[in-house]
């Protein structure tokens, strides 16, 4: 029997047999990709904390985004909070995990955020109002009762996306990029 392609990949995926030096390496995939450049650098505590905190922080950032018109919050701070969640993820999981969890390209996020904000600014002109003016939309949603919506929320959504995109781009350029450069140069981090 010859080694088929399937055979090779099963042998090469590095799971069995476990090398002696890595017998205590965590098997469970606490973060999405479950792998990192230097297994010795992993911290189980940080990974587990991140796993618990990451979605919570994202939800909290959405709360800040929505509440921004009436209380402390808004697109910028919400975007930064969400960005911090990604920073935590990057610190815990390294760039391999980061690449797995963040699939959209940062420029696309930045561009669409900017576009959303600008279109929000331009839409009032179509109704004869000054550019960038806002209005309150009220509706009776069945289960929720009366819901009020400031149109400036869409501007905030744009800013939110923009900031998240910028943080992702920063992590890619300054975090991931520098790490790759250092690996290329053969330096230890």
């Amino acid at each position: 029997m010859t080694d088929g392609p399937g055979m090779t990949s099963r042998l090469n995926d590095g799971r069995d047999p476990v090398p002696f030096e890595e017998w205590d390496r965590p098997r469970g995939e606490w973060l999405l990709s479950g792998e990192c450049r230097r297994p010795g650098d992993r911290s189980l505590l940080l990974e587990m904390t991140t796993r618990a905190v990451f979605p919570t922080v994202l939800v909290f950032s959405l709360y800040l985004l929505l509440v921004g018109h009436y209380g402390p919050g808004g697109g910028f701070s919400a975007g930064l909070v969400a960005g911090l969640a990604f920073v935590l993820r990057y610190i815990a999981g390294g760039n391999a995990d980061f690449g797995a969890v963040v699939s959209p390209r940062a420029p696309v996020v930045i561009g669409s955020g900017l576009a959303v904000a600008l279109v929000t600014g331009l839409v009032p002109a179509a109704f004869g109002a000054p550019v960038l003016s806002t209005t309150k939309l009220a509706a009776d949603v069945p289960l929720f009762g009366p819901v009020e919506l400031q149109t400036s929320l869409f501007l905030d959504v744009g800013v939110y996306l923009l900031i998240v995109g910028v943080v992702l781009d920063l992590l890619r350029a300054l975090g991931d990029g520098i790490e790759r450069d250092m690996d290329d140069a053969g330096e230890a981090l």
Binding site: P107, V108, I110, G111, L114, V119, L122, A125, P130, V131
Partner: peptide
């Protein structure tokens, strides 16, 4: 006319957004 006045600022920004999204 007041809308025309804002467009020289907003149009290039929108263009920048489109060129970032379509950066391929």
């Amino acid at each position: 006319m007041t809308t025309v006045l804002t467009l020289p600022v907003l149009l290039p920004m929108l263009g920048a957004a489109v060129t970032v999204v379509g950066s391929r």
